[in-house]
Simulated scan of single mutants.
Amino acid sequence: MKFTKWNFIFLVAGIIVYTADIGVDFWVASKYFYEGQYCWAILILCFRSLSSLITQIFSYQWFKNDWKGTAPGKLDWIFLVHFFQCGIFIRYWFALKYGCQAAFRQDSIGDVSKPDPPNIIQKQAIDVLTDINMLRVFKTFLETTPQLFVQIYILMEHNNHNFYQHAAIIISFCGISFSMVDYQISLRKSLPDKEELQVLPKLVYLFYKLFTITSWILSISLVTVLSVRSSIILLILLWSCGFAWTLKQHTTFCKSKEMEYLYRTVVGIILLFTFFNIKGRKTKACISIYYATHTLVTVGILLVYLFWKPAVIKEVHLTIVSILTILSLVLGIIFLAVYYKYFHPTTYCKQQTFFDEVDRRGGDNMEAGRFQNFIMQ
Rank of each mutant, 00 (worst) to 15 (best):
I16E: 01
N277P: 05
Q124E: 13
W245V: 01
T144P: 08
K202P: 05
R188G: 05
T325E: 00
L234M: 05
A13K: 09
G99D: 01
T274R: 09
N159D: 15
I301A: 07
R360Q: 15
K31N: 11
A167H: 00
K189R: 12
Y205W: 11
F207A: 11
C349P: 02
T214L: 13
S179Y: 09
A71L: 02
S328M: 09
L331V: 15
C286H: 12
L306K: 14
C349T: 13
I287R: 11
F47A: 10
Q372A: 15
L336A: 02
M1D: 13
R188S: 07
L226Q: 13
I109P: 14
I185M: 04
P72H: 06
D182I: 02
V316K: 13
T293S: 12
I375Q: 15
A29I: 02
M1F: 08
K202T: 14
L155H: 02
F94K: 05
R105V: 10
S230M: 12
Q106Y: 12
I334A: 03
F149G: 05
K341I: 03
L96E: 04
L226D: 13
H317A: 03
I170N: 05
F26M: 10
A125P: 08
F94H: 01
G99P: 03
L50D: 06
H344Q: 06
S113F: 10
F89S: 07
I54V: 04
